Simulated assay, not measured.
Amino acid sequence: METGDDRSGLRCLVTGATGYIGGRLVPELLEAGHQVRCLARTPKKLRDLPWAKQVEVAQGDVTDPESLGAAMRDTDVAYYLVHALGTGTGFEETDR
C-alpha cells in the first residue's frame, strides 16, 4: 500500500468508511499507526474527508465477490461496517 508514510502495523480494510462508525474508526486506525484501505462503491464520497490522502481507496461493493476479494487482498484485518437496510425487503438476505 502506498500512503506516503513508512508505517508499520496492521493493514486494515474498512468497509462503510463514509458511515458514522467507519468515519470515526479510520482516523483512529491511522493514529495507531495502521495502514488503511477503504472499500467504496463511490470513491469520490471519501475525497473530502480529512484523512482521505492517508488511505488507499479501493472501488467496489461488498455484494460483489470479485471486488471484495481484491479489496481484502494483502490485508490483516477487515472491518465490515455496512448494512443493507436501505435496499428494501429482503435486506436480511443481502446482509448475509
Rank of each mutant, 00 (worst) to 15 (best):
D64N: 15
K44Y: 07
R7F: 06
E93S: 13
R37P: 09
S67W: 05
M1Y: 11
V57G: 11
A17Q: 07
L29F: 06
L30A: 10
W51E: 02
E56G: 08
L39H: 07
E2L: 13
K53G: 15
G19F: 01
G19W: 05
G4D: 02
V62R: 05
L68Q: 09
C12D: 07
A84S: 15
G19M: 06
D74V: 06
P65R: 06
Y80P: 00
P43E: 05
E92R: 13
L30D: 08
L46N: 08
V26H: 11
S67C: 00
E31D: 15
E66P: 00
M1A: 14
K44F: 03
G22M: 04
C12F: 04
M72C: 15
K53Q: 15
G16D: 00
V55I: 15
L46G: 10
T3W: 01
V14N: 04
H34E: 12
D64Q: 10
Y80V: 11
R24D: 03
L10Y: 07
R47G: 04
P65L: 06
T3M: 03
T89P: 14
P65E: 07
F91T: 06
Q54L: 08
T89H: 13
L68S: 08
L30K: 09
M1P: 12
D76L: 12
A32C: 06
G60N: 06
E28V: 13
L30Y: 04
R24V: 01
L85K: 11
T75Y: 00
L39N: 04
V82N: 11
V36N: 05
G60I: 03
E2H: 12
G88M: 04
A17T: 03
E2K: 12
P50R: 10
E93T: 14
D61K: 08
K53V: 05
R11P: 04
G22V: 03
Q35K: 12
V14T: 00
R7E: 05
T87E: 15
Q35M: 08
Y79V: 02
G23F: 01
A17R: 04
K44C: 02
M72N: 02
G86W: 01
P27H: 05
V62Q: 08
L46A: 01
T63W: 00
